[in-house]
């Protein structure tokens, strides 16, 4: 990605200012703006960190510290879809290890990796707090419940 592509549109810059004005201290809008940055640029590169720092009264080092702290921010390009299978206790009891092994076989990648065609990034994550539907996973913005190998296949096939 070239330097010129890491920039918000005018409408987005207006949204940044709106978000900053919601808080007693504008810096509190950092997380919401980082969410915007990730949606816009795909992931948060060092360049994007610097760009966002410039929109706030903070150093790039501060933004870097924040970005690296949270699991939902990607510092490397991710797949077009993120499949995050819960491996915490209730899902574990309901067979999460088998589900994760199945997804790995189907995609041909390990946990933390992205398929060669850039289609899917696979993650194993902590409790997504939908344990009543274990085993479950998050696919992009959606929660998928009551997973079986067949259901997983269907879901994966739907990801383009």
């Amino acid at each position: 990605m070239s330097a010129s592509t890491v920039a918000f549109s005018d409408a987005q810059l207006a949204e940044v200012r709106r978000l900053q004005a919601l808080y007693p201290d504008a810096r509190a809008a950092l997380l919401p703006v980082l969410h915007m940055a990730q949606e816009t640029f795909g992931h948060i590169s060092l360049e994007a960190e610097e760009y966002v720092a410039g929109l706030f009264d903070v150093t790039p080092a501060h933004v870097h510290e924040v970005v690296t702290f949270y699991t939902l921010f990607f510092r490397q390009p991710k797949g077009r879809h993120v499949v995050a299978v819960c491996h915490n206790l209730s899902c574990h009891l309901a067979g999460a290890p088998e589900i994760i092994a199945h997804v790995m076989r189907r995609l041909g990648i390990g946990v933390g990796a992205t398929t060669d065609d850039g289609r899917v990034t696979l993650q194993a994550v902590e409790c997504l707090c939908a344990c009543e539907h274990a085993p479950m996973m998050q696919v992009d913005d959606r929660y998928e419940f009551g997973l079986t190998p067949e259901k997983v296949d269907q879901i994966l096939e739907g990801l383009r």
Binding site: N88, L89, S90, E126, C127, C129, A130, C131, E132
Partner: peptide, 11 residues
């Protein structure tokens, strides 16, 4: 921020 494993009421 509901995150305690085993909890899903606030959702």
């Amino acid at each position: 921020d509901e995150g305690e494993p085993g909890t899903f009421k606030d959702r």
